[in-house]
Amino acid sequence: AELMTLTIVKGAQGFGFTIADSPTGQRVKQILDIQGCPGLCEGDLIVEINQQNVQNLSHTEVVDILKDCPIGSETSLIIHRG
């Protein structure tokens, strides 16, 4: 298992991935745009978004944080894999 830092840019259609609740937090459910989120894999656990720890937040709260990220700006994700 490892922590990885990824930088992704939000496009007009969003980030290009969906998230779902899991017992340990929000996991990447589906990658819709592989080019839009390079390095991200289905099943990755989202630990931080732009230096904000999201592991204890609800699904709705994490979705809102992602929605609030401006289109075209870089967003830093720390994910836990494995």
Rank of each mutant, 00 (worst) to 15 (best):
I46T: 01
R81M: 01
K67N: 11
N50M: 06
Q30W: 14
P23E: 11
Q26P: 14
V62D: 00
I19G: 00
I71V: 13
E61M: 15
D21G: 07
T75P: 04
N53Q: 11
G39L: 03
F17S: 00
T5R: 04
M4D: 12
H80T: 14
S58D: 03
S73N: 02
N50L: 03
G11N: 13
G11L: 06
P38N: 01
E48D: 01
S58C: 14
P23V: 02
R27A: 10
D33P: 04
Q52I: 14
C69D: 02
D33L: 04
F15H: 12
G72E: 11
R81T: 04
R81H: 14
G72R: 13
L57G: 04
P23Q: 11
R27M: 08
G14R: 07
S58E: 08
G25H: 02
T7P: 10
I65Q: 08
D33T: 11
I49P: 00
K67M: 12
M4N: 09
T18G: 08
L66I: 01
Q13S: 11
I78E: 07
T5M: 14
I49Y: 05
H59E: 15
I79L: 14
L66S: 01
L32I: 09
D68W: 04
T60K: 12
I78K: 05
P70K: 09
G11C: 04
G36E: 14
V28E: 00
A20K: 11
V47F: 15
F15W: 12
I19P: 11
K67P: 00
C69T: 15
P38D: 05
V63W: 11
N56C: 02
E2Y: 07
L32K: 02
E42R: 06
K10S: 04
Q35T: 15
I19Q: 00
K29A: 07
G11I: 06
D44Q: 01
V54E: 00
I78Y: 12
P70D: 15
S73D: 05
Q51S: 11
E74V: 05
H59C: 13
R81I: 00
D68P: 03
G36S: 04
E42N: 07
V47W: 07
L32T: 11
Q52P: 00
L77F: 09
Q35V: 08
I8P: 07
L3F: 13
I78R: 14
G14K: 09
I19R: 00
T75N: 06
N50E: 13
T24W: 08
I65W: 08
L40A: 06
I31R: 02
Q55C: 06
N50T: 01
K29D: 15
S58Y: 03
Q30Y: 08
Q51H: 12
Q35I: 03
K67W: 03
I71K: 06
T18P: 00
D21A: 05
R81E: 01
G36H: 05
K10T: 03
C41K: 10
Q55G: 15
S58W: 11
T5D: 11
E42Y: 09
L32Q: 03
E74G: 04
T18S: 12
L6E: 03
E74C: 02
L6Q: 07
P23D: 05
G25M: 03
H80Y: 13
H80E: 13
N53Y: 08
A1E: 11
T60E: 09
Q13K: 09
Q30P: 06
G14T: 11
R81S: 09
D21P: 10
L40P: 03
G39F: 02
P23T: 09
N53H: 10
I65L: 08
P38R: 05
S76Q: 12
V63H: 01
L3Y: 11
P70Q: 07
D33M: 05
V9P: 05
A20E: 04
G14I: 04
L66R: 00
V62E: 00
C69M: 06
G25D: 00
I34E: 10
I34S: 11
N50A: 05
P23L: 11
I31Q: 07
Q30R: 06
F17R: 00
L77W: 08
E2A: 10
T24G: 14
M4Y: 11
T7F: 11
H80C: 05
I65K: 08
T5L: 06
Q52H: 11
Q35R: 13
D21F: 03
I79F: 10
T18Q: 08
I31P: 03
K29H: 15
D64G: 09
K67L: 07
V63R: 08
P70R: 12
M4T: 12
I34C: 08
D33S: 11
G11S: 11
T18I: 13
P23M: 08
I31A: 06
L66T: 01
E2L: 05
D44A: 02
D64I: 03
V54P: 00
T24S: 12
